[in-house]
């Protein structure tokens, strides 16, 4: 397989327990997408969405969509009762620009499109460091992630846009 090396980027490294095999895996998020780290907020459940979406919370008046990374990546079974955002955990807030059609029910003219920055949050166990990593452009499963080498070992680098839109999953 051809490998392309691209310029190094800075990432925040996070651990996430509960992965398959019980091991702790390392996840990396681009710093230029990361907006801030928040303590577990109060979550509002949203109907009719992918089960990996935990709901919404407010960050200074803005709506943030909270995504359960484990569930999104299909790494562990869903336990609705699991305190997946325990007090010691953190949510890393990522910003991405979404292009969308406005909902005419909110009064937008039909077909009106706009680009708007939207916020996503990912629940993680801990943020263990920030470092500059070099990348090899080689996509690995889970889709939308790529592998980067860090001082702590290999980590999956995840982009906000890939996380924002759940992949179509087959019905069980």
């Amino acid at each position: 397989m051809t490998q392309l090396t691209v310029a190094p980027i800075e990432v925040a490294l996070c651990t996430l327990s509960g992965s398959a095999g019980g091991e702790e895996e390392l996840w990396a998020f681009r710093l230029d997408e990361a907006a801030e780290i928040v303590k577990p907020p109060t979550i509002t459940r949203v109907p009719r969405v992918d089960p990996s979406i935990r709901g919404l919370f407010l960050l200074r008046g803005r709506l943030v969509t909270l995504i359960d990374l484990g569930a999104r990546l299909g790494l562990r079974r869903l336990h609705p009762e699991l305190p997946w955002l325990a007090p010691q955990r953190r949510a890393i807030v990522l910003a991405h620009v979404a292009r969308r059609r406005d909902d005419p029910r909110l009064g937008a003219p039909r077909g009106h499109r706009r680009e708007e920055q939207e916020l996503l949050a990912i629940g993680v166990d801990a943020i263990v460091g920030v470092e500059r990593v070099s990348r090899e452009l080689r996509a690995v499963p889970p889709s939308g992630s790529e592998l980067v080498r860090t001082s702590r070992g290999p980590a999956f680098l995840l982009g906000a846009a890939a996380l924002a839109f759940p992949p179509r999953r087959e019905e069980p």
Binding site: A12, R30, D32
Partner: peptide
């Protein structure tokens, strides 16, 4: 998808 997010953390 396009990214355009700059932020301080």
């Amino acid at each position: 998808a396009e990214f355009d997010a700059h932020a301080s953390v």
